[in-house]
Write a protein that binds this DNA or RNA. Structure first.
Lengths: 231, 231
DNA sequence: GTCTATAGTCGGATAGAC
DNA sequence: GTCTATCCGACTATAGAC
């Protein structure tokens, strides 16, 4: 007996979503402090007082924006990540030799990094980046949301793949250093974007440039993993 | 006949410096928008109206802060960089074989990266980072100052060392991709600091942690360079 | 749930005395 | 060069009608 579930009070729900969407854009463009609730309300086509009603205030809206970011990021990178994870469920690595380990774990690692890089330099992440980097500098409750839902699961999986490829415990310091130096290779193209564009002479990081970046990261990570596995 | 040179109007000069110093701290902690000229003046022990007098306004002070950052960064990384550069003045790379190139260019590259990493994760860069990352997202005139005086020269030298080690033109796309993926390995530990600390279980990135990071980056870059030079 | 109106604050800039 | 005093705009939050 299939029937359409009614969203609880449709009007309010629509307003909420519009405000979050607008806030994402304005917070992302101007940063938390420079963004005004007036501008957000205007962009959402909603009344400024409704921010107080729906989210309690500017900070509450900011937190709701991070929930939204976590949703979207989760949709984009976690499916790839968890499908890979499932593939290796409960598989021991002790029995494999060096070449077998690399052959098994490196390809999915490189695929996951491709996805991560694409999301990171993509259009949509531009606004998120400013907010996320702000949280990295002075973490608030929003960082907890982000870490629990995205950073944690993501680093877990990349760490497991790295550990599988080079051998060792997934949470050992050595693997974690490998992990962050690996992710950092992609992160630069977002965090140091202006410097990259200026030196490269690029106007944007479009599909062509993305492919070049992904290729370089692939080669780098392959080289690193082979070197680290070689002892 | 040695005599003390009088700074041009001593009082004003002292006030200027105090304001810049205070602004560095407050802009760095709170960001440009959240920082107030009142708080900066208070921290400097100066009068709020003097910001207008000396710098024309908040934005002028912000720019002056970047000049200061460029000064300090220049003192910390450029000496190492230029001493290395002098060492390779006018040296051609065509005549060297693979092993000779690596032996010649890799060690100074790794030394320079050590310095870069140390400065980046160091205490003093904490405040700068927020401001610099903001400029990477939406570059203003302050970015021009920073790029011309620091990022440009630094990337030039690292690019030359990489080009020397793997062979090729220093400004080719391939070298530039190598360059940014290399620098990015250090950048993460500043830009994604909160995530690093949480996953690593570190309280701070002190001398011990810095050494571990530097070691990993050394091994990574060595592996990458050897792989890239190998064709 | 949505609106108007406004209270209450705080910010950057600046005039003008010293 | 430095200070006090103040202007004026912009902001967030909220009271209260609908």
């Amino acid at each position: 007996m299939p029937f359409q579930r009614l969203p609880d009070s449709p009007r309010g729900h629509i307003t909420r979503e519009a405000l979050i969407q607008a806030a994402l854009g304005i917070f992302g463009r101007d940063g938390f402090d420079a963004a005004s609730t007036r501008a957000i309300a205007a962009a959402a086509g909603a009344n400024q007082a409704l921010i107080g009603y729906h989210f309690g205030g500017k900070e509450g809206l900011y937190l709701a924006v991070f929930e939204h970011i976590a949703d979207r990021l989760g949709e984009q990178v976690l499916p790839v990540a968890t499908s890979i994870k499932a593939q290796f469920q409960g598989r021991g690595t002790r029995t494999l030799n060096r070449e077998a380990r690399i052959g098994l774990y490196l390809p999915p690692l490189l695929r996951l990094l491709d996805t991560f890089t694409a999301v990171l330099v993509g259009e949509e992440a531009a606004g998120w980046a400013r907010l996320i980097l702000r949280e990295q500098h002075s973490p608030s409750r929003a960082f907890d949301v982000l870490y629990a839902r995205i950073m944690g699961p993501l680093t877990d999986i990349v760490g497991q793949l790295l550990a599988g490829a080079v051998g060792g415990a997934p949470d050992a310091t050595r693997i974690n250093l490998l992990l962050f130096t690996t992710l950092g290779q992609a992160l630069t193209f977002r965090a140091a974007r202006a410097s990259v564009l200026r030196r490269m002479g690029w106007q944007e990081i479009g599909p062509r440039e993305l492919a070049a970046v992904q290729g370089q990261i692939r080669r780098n990570v392959a080289a690193i993993v082979r070197a680290e596995a070689g002892r």
